[in-house]
Design a protein around this nucleic acid. Structure first.
Length: 257
DNA sequence: CGGCGCACCTGAGTGC
DNA sequence: TGCACTCAGGTGCGCC
């Protein structure tokens, strides 16, 4: 990575310019991993650059000579005429750098406060049942709490609960193990589909088109206020739950008690 | 501690 | 190429 440049705006936090200069510029990018909704760019010396995309962030590969776009906040050039660009209109995203010295410890601490990965063995009816047993928050809020479960945002929380036929308002402590099993299966199916669509988005970036991935995923309830439920034709309802738009079918999704 | 409300920001859409 | 207003895919802080 031959050169790092940035805008003068801060994201969620100021861009760590000094650390990027010291630990990213001039280094060799070895692998890119993901934990929760964070991207981990690992240098071959052990340093790590962590990027979160917030609501509107996008990372793409571009020719260095291509004109920069409004809201490009970070550019990292490679030694082959390409560069990676982080574009983020609302600036809810973030960039953090762990130097090789403390990276392992920092990653452990970071990972410890992020929730269960939906494709891990921990994402089981047993585990979720126990985590939920003493809590009373609505199941939708529970699914969206990144400290408990990683990677499920508002759109997919809505879609998962529709697929599992669970009402978003249901208090988590009333779900039985078999309800959790439905939720888990729905989550894995829907996230798998979403990831497949996301893969298409990455290709679009290279082709300079740039369609957000979720337009390619078929949504059953999210943003479908007043549309007929695909299962029973009842009109989809919308309510605000914990400040977030919540869509559901009041026939298919019953509040458990 | 758990649960909730709200702040952080820009842009798209809608109604007048 | 107006203006005012609402809403948006996430996270984390402060308050009760």
């Amino acid at each position: 990575m031959t050169r790092v440049t940035w805008s003068n705006k801060k994201l969620r936090a100021p861009i760590p310019r000094k650390l990027l200069k010291e630990h990213v510029e001039g280094k060799i990018l070895k692998t890119i991993d993901r934990r929760a909704k964070y991207l981990l760019f690992r240098m071959d010396d052990g340093a790590v650059m962590v990027i979160h995309l917030g609501m509107t962030g996008k990372v793409g590969l571009f020719q260095q000579r291509k004109k920069i776009a409004k809201h490009d906040h970070l550019r990292i050039a490679f030694n082959n005429s390409m560069e990676m660009r982080l574009n983020d209109a609302r600036r809810f995203g973030s960039v953090v750098v762990w130097s090789q010295k403390g990276a392992e410890e920092q990653e452990r601490k970071f990972s410890a406060k992020e929730g269960i990965e939906p494709f891990s063995n921990q994402f089981s009816a047993e585990v979720l049942y126990h985590l939920a047993s003493k809590r009373t928050i609505p199941v939708k809020s529970f699914l969206m709490q990144s400290r408990i479960i990683a990677g499920i945002g508002n759109i997919y929380a809505n879609e998962i609960l529709f697929a599992a036929r669970v009402h978003p308002q249901t208090s988590v402590n009333v779900l039985r193990k078999r309800d959790w099993q439905y939720v888990i299966e729905a989550a894995q199916t829907i996230l798998t589909r979403a990831i497949a669509a996301g893969g298409t988005t990455i290709s679009d970036f290279l082709n300079s088109s740039g369609q957000p991935g979720y337009f390619q995923v078929e949504l059953n309830v999210y943003n479908k206020l007043g549309s007929p439920c695909p299962e029973c034709t009842t009109l989809i309802k919308k309510e605000i739950l914990a400040g977030r738009a919540t869509y559901f079918c009041s026939t298919c999704q019953r509040v458990l008690t």
